[in-house]
């Protein structure tokens, strides 16, 4: 499988803190790559560095041959990168419709794509004209993911979609993400919920202390409890 995104020796400093300390990561085209690791390992910072929200202080950062390092966040988004942040980034004062309208950058939403999204997330259709601030946590997460889906994207970065959601809603999210995977969209997803990671991941990278310490196939990691215990430690059991 051709590689779409490549990070080589990426370092990121936030103020005086040295967060990413040489991240090497390859995201193959058309796959869902899971980024796992304990809190503070640098997963969110990796996504934010790819998006240009934090600047990489050293290393290579390329999307299909385009160097991302000199680009500003809007220009990276315009290359076809969708971003679903950890806090969901939903505009609470705007209606669900307006949130979606902004995500469709050319100003018009594709009807058939919208119908597809409604079939995955019926709640969005139901609350179409209401301020997004009125939605529940799960519904906000759906809106945030739907924004990334309203246009075809080359790469979608999703930061811990299951965070704080009830198990039934996580199941629903897994179903929706499976549907998104059928479109062969390339996805890089940060997750702490191993059940979700196991259900969706093709490839996996595990981070610790600002580096990727393991990269391989998700199925292999899922089948190897000893490796899981070594890489993810006790936190794994707590999330299952």
């Amino acid at each position: 499988m051709a590689e779409l995104l490549r990070l080589e020796g990426v370092h990121t400093h936030i103020g005086q803190y040295h967060i990413l300390q040489g991240v090497d990561l390859v995201v193959p085209e058309g796959e869902l790559t899971m980024l796992l690791g304990r809190n503070g390992a640098g997963k969110t910072t990796t996504l934010r560095t790819i998006m240009g929200m934090w600047r990489a202080s050293a290393g290579e950062l390329g999307l299909a041959g385009t160097d991302l390092r000199p680009l500003a966040t809007p220009d990276i988004a315009r290359l076809g990168v969708g971003y679903v942040p950890e806090n969901m980034g939903v505009f609470a004062a705007l209606t669900v419709r307006e949130n979606m309208l902004l995500a469709a950058r050319d100003g018009a939403m594709d009807e058939s794509r919208l119908e597809w999204i409604f079939s995955l997330f019926p709640a969005l259709k139901k609350f179409w004209g209401l301020p997004a601030g009125n939605l529940s946590g799960g519904q906000k997460q759906m809106l945030s993911i739907a924004r990334a889906m309203i246009e075809p994207r080359r790469l979608i970065l999703i930061d811990e979609p299951s965070k704080g959601l009830a198990p039934a809603i996580v199941d629903a999210l897994i179903e929706a993400m499976r549907e998104l995977k059928r479109t062969a969209t390339t996805i890089l997803m940060v997750e702490q919920n191993f059940r979700m990671a196991q259900a969706l991941g093709d490839g996996v990278a595990v981070m610790d202390d600002g580096r990727v310490v393991h990269a391989g196939r998700m199925a292999e990691l899922a089948a190897d409890p000893a490796l899981q215990a070594r890489l993810l430690g006790l936190s794994l059991g707590a999330h299952q």
Binding site: M53, T73, R78, F91, L94, L102
Partner: peptide, 21 residues
Amino acid sequence: GLLIRAGVENGEMVEALGYRV
């Protein structure tokens, strides 16, 4: 106007959607 209202709320996210705030 939509962009301005969104930008007042969360400028970073508006940029992540591809707009130059």
